[in-house]
Structure formats: C-alpha cells, structure tokens
Design a protein around this nucleic acid. Structure first.
Length: 271
DNA sequence: ACCCAGGAGACTG
DNA sequence: CAGTCTCATGGG
C-alpha cells in the first residue's frame, strides 16, 4: 500500500472510479505532492487532486500544532530522547475507518511481521491494484466486497476464524451505516466513541483506542494495553521487565491530552 | 522446542 | 467486576 524511495512516499488514491498515485516528499515549509497516472478527463484530475490534498493533510496530521506536546515531553524522562530523536514526526493517520478497524483487528495478538503478511494477503486478494511507473500499488478493499464474503473465502489468508468473522462484521457495520467516522465524531468524546466501537464484535479497548488514534485522531486516545508500548517503555527506561498497568497509568498522568502522540513516538523507538 | 505477539470474547466465581 | 481459558498462526 506504500512505497518509500529516496525520501518520497508513494500511495494510490481513489475518488469514485478515478485513481492515481500520490508522490509525497519534503518541501520548504511543508510537503510536495505530485499525482502520477492521472486520468485524461480534466474534471476527474481536479477532483483527484482535491481529494489527494485533503488526504495528505489528514494523513500527516498537518493541522496539528505539536508545540504543547514538545513542551510536556521536555520535562519527561521517558520522552526526552524519543522527542529529540524524532523531532518533527507526526502521527501518521489512517483516514479510512474501515481500513483502521481492519488493521486493528488483524494486528491483535500476533507479531507485527505476521500482521503485515496477513494485511498484504487481504489487500492483494480483495483490494484494487493501481499501476504507476511499472510499480503496482493497492487500494484497500472496499467494505462492500468484504461484507459479501463468507469466512471460508478468507480461510486461505490463514488468520483465525474469529478474525475473519470480525472483519466481515466490521465491513457489514460500515456498509449498513451502523458504524461510520461521522457517527464516531458525533459521539462527542473519547469515552463515547470508545463505547460505540467496543460494542462491535472483535473490537476491544485496544482496537477502539487504536482506531480513534489513527482515524479520528483524538490526541488523548491511548491504547494502554499495547505490547509495543510496553516494550518501548521497558527499552527506553532500561527496565528488566515490562511496566505494569498501574505504572503506565502513573506515567501517563503527565501526558494528559497527548497520549496518542506519546504512544506513536514510543512505537518509533522499536523500528 | 519454546515463548510470545501492536487482544478479545466466553466463561467462571 | 476481576481472573482464567481459548483462539490459532508464525516469527525469533
């Protein structure tokens, strides 16, 4: 779904039936955005460009002022180093709710390498390929397609039967409108959005906060049960064991309002 | 061979 | 409500 080469990131985008590939890179005071393999139709080009600008703005969290985060991090023993090391890093979003939920469901209780393998299989089985400069990019599968599948269709991907059910269920909820980004945003608070999400099968507290962090972008979303977060804290503090939940709760009191960014910066330590 | 992984749901007390 | 068991596969 992404390709990173020579400081540029490439990713396919769609608007209706029109597709193109975004090429995003650094530019003075911001980002550069170029579209490859544009359709011939001028109106379609304009529409795609507008969609791409909006997507990149959300993807890179460009409207966020990070100075309060850096302010609080400067006085935090755990955060000083990652913030110095990754200065300027923004929480990369997953603007599409279905994609964020799928990625959360797939990533539950398996190692990340295997999670990437499963995601690749899902995308290359049910997503849509977009070619540019001889490279194939993939658009994430549409919920309408996944909702039409049965568990046996997903069996070749080699994820658990329950995960197959959860993915199909999430797709059905999106297609029916029972679940949507608008509905979550309208919930009004992190707690209420979490409640709506954990009402779905396969979505527990971790996945709910993960989706709220990556898709809704509430900066106080906090997947506190995340194993990667635990390992990052252990690593950065030189502990001989992972932190306990009470310890994490105590630490996070100084992060209030920026828990999602703290989590994202700590994850970065593990790459 | 062994442990555990960016958890969640069902079940039990 | 808090603990325990089960799911199931693959990476290290």
């Amino acid at each position: 779904m992404y390709r990173i080469e020579e400081g540029f990131v490439y990713k396919a985008i769609a608007r209706g039936d029109d597709t193109a590939v975004m090429k995003v890179g650094p530019a003075a005071g911001g980002l550069s955005l170029e579209l490859l393999e544009m359709p011939k139709n001028a109106a379609a080009c304009d529409g795609l460009m507008a969609a791409a600008v909006a997507y990149v703005r959300e993807w890179f969290d460009l409207d966020r002022d990070l100075s309060p985060f850096y302010e609080l991090a400067s006085g935090d023993r755990l955060l000083q180093e990652p913030v110095r090391q990754f200065n300027g890093l923004r929480l990369m979003g997953i603007p599409d709710l279905f994609e964020a939920l799928c990625w959360g469901i797939i990533g539950q209780q398996i190692n990340l390498a295997f999670a990437y393998t499963l995601k690749r299989r899902l995308i290359e089985s049910y997503g849509m390929p977009v070619e540019a400069e001889g490279v194939t990019y993939w658009l994430f599968p549409k919920p309408e397609l996944i909702a039409s599948l049965s568990v046996s269709d997903l069996e070749p991907l080699r994820m658990t039967v329950k995960k197959c059910e959860y993915l199909i269920g999430a797709a059905e909820a999106i297609v029916s409108g029972a679940m949507s980004k608008e509905r979550l945003n309208a919930a009004g608070s992190l707690k209420e959005a979490e409640k709506l999400l954990t009402g779905m099968r396969g979505i527990g507290p971790w996945t709910a906060h993960y989706a709220i962090m990556r898709c809704l972008r509430l900066p106080d979303a906090f997947p506190i049960d995340d194993v990667g977060l635990h390992n990052a804290v252990k690593l950065q503090l030189g502990m001989d064991r992972k932190p306990t939940k009470p310890e994490l709760i105590a630490m996070s009191e100084g992060w209030r309002g920026w828990e999602a960014y703290v989590t994202f910066y700590l994850w970065r330590l593990l790459y």
